[in-house]
Nucleic acid binder design. Structure first.
Lengths: 137, 137
DNA sequence: GGTTTTTTGCAATGTTGTTGCAAAAAACAA
DNA sequence: TTGTTTTTTGCAACAACATTGCAAAAAACC
């Protein structure tokens, strides 16, 4: 099993307390995390700024990816299928539960193909489904 | 052809300069607009706060809808298929061109069905495709 | 160990969104 | 049309969120 230092080293990043801790949060959580969540869990250990910079770095290195939401907040989730730097292929569907507000990466549900109009070329597709999750059913 | 006052009246809104002007921006633009865009185009005429409140009202009345983006900003676009108050059916795909950065509502491309895992119930689905648009081809 | 490079924390600053309230404008009714 | 009621606007203040420069601290390198 991959440890946090492994993952960091693999991405060519220095191994620091903050990075290990934040990476751990993702490894232990099944869903996606908002910046605010991470900040709350680490407030006593690190500065807000460090959280911003760490997340930014992780996105650049392809360790996590961003999930768009309609409420003007960004969610972050681990890239399960190794993403290269600056090149994410998170072709799975994200599910936001309207009851418990959790965001879940449906890793096994791939984004269905869409027929684009003529002269449009697809590079990436993201899909966000809202509804009720299995726990709130 | 529908004029701005028509649309406003139809939604039960008072007809004001700011609403007409902002609605016009949407009618004249083919793509989606960010709050910042609208603020820039109207800065000399209206207050920032008015822009916020106008957009909020338009969303509530089903005149425009929001498009989620990964960069922590919300885009707004006209609802082409009459949406009722608080009940949008913007089941179409949004396209973001990675070259010119324009966001386009592909009104004729509906969001394809997804098979969710057991015990997940879908309420809404949003899809954002990035790639190269017809103009940049 | 010492040296270089990277990361962190702090402070300051910028950006974005919200709220209360009085003035102005629009809608309404005679 | 005019006067009255209702809605909208602008201002100011504020709150939340995000970014930047720089010196100190920590990690990587040898």
């Amino acid at each position: 099993m991959k440890t946090q230092p492994d993952i960091l080293k693999q991405s060519g990043l220095s191994i620091t307390e903050s990075r290990k801790k934040i990476l751990d949060l993702f490894l232990l959580s099944d869903g996606a995390l908002a910046h605010a969540d991470i900040e709350k869990s680490t407030a006593s250990s690190f500065d807000r700024v460090t959280v911003y910079r760490t997340l930014q770095t992780f996105v650049e290195k392809g360790i996590i990816h961003q999930i768009p939401t309609t409420d003007n907040s960004i969610l972050y989730a681990l890239c399960k299928h190794n993403c290269e730097q600056g090149h994410h292929h998170d072709d799975h569907v994200h599910f936001i539960c309207s009851n418990c507000d959790k965001t879940i990466c449906l890793d096994d549900v791939t984004v269905p193909e869409v027929k684009l109009p003529k002269n449009f070329t697809k590079q990436q597709a993201a899909m966000v489904v809202t509804g009720v999750c299995e726990d709130c059913k």
